[in-house]
């Protein structure tokens, strides 16, 4: 048996990091949305077999919108904000002024911006906690089946292990008109750096 990349204690630490990062992200989103209340679940940090990850978003063929950001700098990680297509449409309807709801390009750019704000506030929180410099790439967006989107992110991360560490948080609005998830995939080297900065061996 090979040694596990992380143990249960380290997963708890990652969960707490995700919790703080997501708290910032959700606050930022709530400010954009005004009336609509946004709730977040307690983040989950898991060590998942590579082959099961595309299923984690609730169905491999589920049509979703995904906003993807790669962070570089002291460590490398990938962040994906995913939401089912109907949620994405509800979200853009809230953000766009009346009369513009049908403009496809504006919808895309609104989603891109929400993803950008969520993920960069998450990164900022992570950076403040750890002192690591994190430089986010410009956000990129795709709308497709969830397995295609998440596997493309895994390929972009050049995952070399057969298990990967994943931090996942679900957020939803009051009447579930909007639900979404934020996934964070740290590189293997990134994990080691985070743990050593926090004094965890």
């Amino acid at each position: 048996m090979g040694k596990k990349i992380v143990d249960a204690y380290k997963l708890d630490v990652l969960k707490e990091l995700a919790n703080i990062g997501m708290g910032h992200a959700v606050t930022a989103l709530a400010q954009m949305l005004g009336e609509e209340k946004i709730f977040m679940d307690v983040p989950v940090a898991t060590l998942a077999p590579l082959q099961d990850v595309p299923e984690l978003l609730g169905g491999a063929e589920l049509p979703v919108a995904g906003v993807f950001i790669a962070a570089d700098g002291d460590i490398q990680l990938k962040i994906l904000f995913v939401l089912p297509l109907d949620s994405a449409l509800n979200l853009t309807a809230l953000l766009l002024p009346g009369g513009w709801e049908d403009a496809e390009e504006l919808k895309l750019s609104a989603l891109l911006e929400v993803g950008n704000i969520l993920t960069s506030s998450y990164l900022t929180a992570l950076s403040l906690m750890t002192g690591l410099i994190l430089l986010p790439s410009p956000p990129a967006i795709a709308m497709d089946m969830s397995a295609a989107i998440i596997s493309t992110v895994m390929a972009a991360a050049h995952i070399q292990d057969d298990e990967l560490v994943l931090m996942q948080t679900t957020l939803s609005s009051q009447e579930k008109r909007i639900t979404g998830q934020i996934l964070m995939l740290p590189d293997r080297g990134a994990l080691n750096k985070i743990f050593s900065l926090l004094g965890i061996r």
Binding site: G66, F68, A70, L108, L112, S137, P138, P139, A140, I141, A142, D144, A148, I149, T152, V153, A155, A156
Partner: peptide, 14 residues
């Protein structure tokens, strides 16, 4: 394929 619009990440992989 190249799923993500407006960015190069993932493109070259496909």
């Amino acid at each position: 394929s190249q799923l993500f619009m407006n960015q190069k990440i993932g493109n070259s992989v496909g």
